[in-house]
Amino acid sequence: MNVSLNVRAAVLSVGILVLFLAAWYAATTGSGPVAPMDPEYAKLMGLTATQGKSAMPGPLDVAATLWGHLRDPFYVRGTNDVGLGIQLGHSVLRVAGGYLLAVLVAVPGGFLIGMSPLMSRALDPFIQVMKPISPLAWMPLALYTIKDSGKSAIFVIFICSLWPMLINTAFGVANTRKEWLNVARTLEVGTLRRAFLVILPAAAPTILTGMRISIGIAWLVIVAAEMLVGGTGIGYFVWNEWNNLSITNVITAILVIGLVGMILDQALARVARLVTFPE
């Protein structure tokens, strides 16, 4: 039954994909109305204006562009024109930097908040205010104070991926089962040992959930941040192709962004499975 469910789900997925591609293809092949034009004038105009070609690319155009990028992902043709692979590398490195910083702050911070009801109450209003702030709202402030666009992007990743981890860690720590803590107390386990040997394993699944939410947010934020500061990264690539009104390249980038986001999420899901325990 289980196997057949997987097979059926796969068939359905492929079916949805084919249907979507067919609809996309049909929607973009038609040509719009074309006004008669003087040939000298037509030479100066683009295909959309002269042949009524849809400004939206079809699936075949996107596939061709994607193949072009995949075939040569690491070219460098100057500061502002490097391959998709290099752009992705820049983005992943930035995300990794900001995200690791956030882990370093959020996990100990979450422990502190979770283990001390006083800190929890005291810090709660700040967390609630900071949590919903959009990454892009931080950007001008970061650029102004940090005075370095690369570090500003990392700071924005940091500040946005901090909160879910902090809250989840605090929640996981605060909700460690009382029985386990009581057993530890009976055995006169020291605070540090209790934190590392009892609370950490107990809270690990919740912490990992927080980290998984955060990596998703970090990857969302990097595209926006790079579109804003430019220079390098996948967000810059999208902006640069938007500048050229090249929807084909933008769609290609969207696909790639989605794939990389999925890989990051799945990697953390693997780690989460390692620390999960049956109750």
Partner: peptide, 10 residues
């Protein structure tokens, strides 16, 4: 190095 930049404020 001529660096393309996203906007005037930046």
């Amino acid at each position: 190095e001529v660096v393309k930049t996203a906007g005037w404020a930046v």
